[in-house]
């Protein structure tokens, strides 16, 4: 496992992208990161010292089979981490995301938000474990995983796991698996928006809360266009 230590007061920003093809349209967007090609397993271990912070977006595109393991330790007071991402699996993809997030000391915060759109015969799994050590008082740890399951033959697994040993903490987790709202679709169609376009609007709106976490600007716009194009043409 690669180990990355974020020194006191520093910020780490890096995107993990798994895609079946290169993404030249993202060049110059200011989003730097590790490109993980399809079919690989990828593990990363991040340790944050005092007042260090990490922003880690994850993007798994159609056609990519991947397993990503994240082990994140908040080891110094005041450390914070945001781990967030999307997985788009329209066909036969096999995607697993494992997160192990440790609050070792007091006054740290972590936020996780993953959303997936899963269809065809794809299989995805999100396994998110948060451990709050006994000395990690005044901890804030939040985790959410929301999925759209769009076919009878696809499969989504979502498994949050909280182990909390301190008592002055704010922790929550949420996991949902749902489908696209048909009343919304009918309303849009009654205004002349064709059925497949209505579904695209719904899917783009579903993933927008994840993209909105990225800093505003050219990078986010390019990424949003890249993702929206994939949603429009793959589902």
């Amino acid at each position: 496992m690669d180990e990355i230590i974020i020194k006191s007061g520093k910020t780490f920003r890096s995107m993990f992208l798994a895609a079946a093809h290169d993404a030249p349209e993202l060049t110059g967007s200011g989003i730097c990161g590790f490109d993980v090609l399809s079919g690989r397993e990828f593990s990363t271990h991040v340790v944050l010292e005092e007042n260090a912070s990490a922003d880690i977006p994850v993007l798994i595109m159609p056609g990519a089979d991947t397993r990503m393991d994240f082990r994140i330790e908040l080891a110094g007071p005041g450390a914070s981490c945001r781990l967030f991402g999307l997985y788009l699996c329209p066909d036969t993809e096999n995607v697993t995301i494992n997160v192990e997030l440790f609050h070792r000391v007091h006054h740290c915060s972590s936020h996780q938000l993953f959303k997936g759109i899963v269809s065809g015969k794809a299989r995805t799994g999100f396994y998110g474990r948060i451990v709050v050590d006994p000395d990690a008082q005044v901890t804030e740890a939040y985790q959410e995983n929301h999925n759209l399951l769009l076919s009878d033959t696809a499969r989504v697994d979502t498994q949050p796991q909280l182990e909390i040993y301190a008592d002055d903490v704010k922790c929550s987790h949420g996991a949902t698996i749902g489908k696209l709202n048909e009343d919304e679709q009918f309303y849009m169609r009654s205004r002349g928006i064709p059925e497949n376009e209505a579904k695209v609007l719904q899917m783009v709106s579903f993933i927008s809360s994840v993209l909105d976490i990225l800093p505003e600007g050219n990078g986010r716009e390019k990424l949003a266009a890249y993702v929206e194009h994939a949603v429009r043409t793959s589902f």
Binding site: D183, R191, G192, I193, P194, E197
Partner: peptide, 18 residues
């Protein structure tokens, strides 16, 4: 019906151009 995440502008532009 409410359509969260879709602005009136985006909604109408899609409807008009469709």
């Amino acid at each position: 019906v409410e359509i969260p995440g879709v602005s009136i502008t985006n909604f109408m532009k899609t409807a008009v151009n469709s």
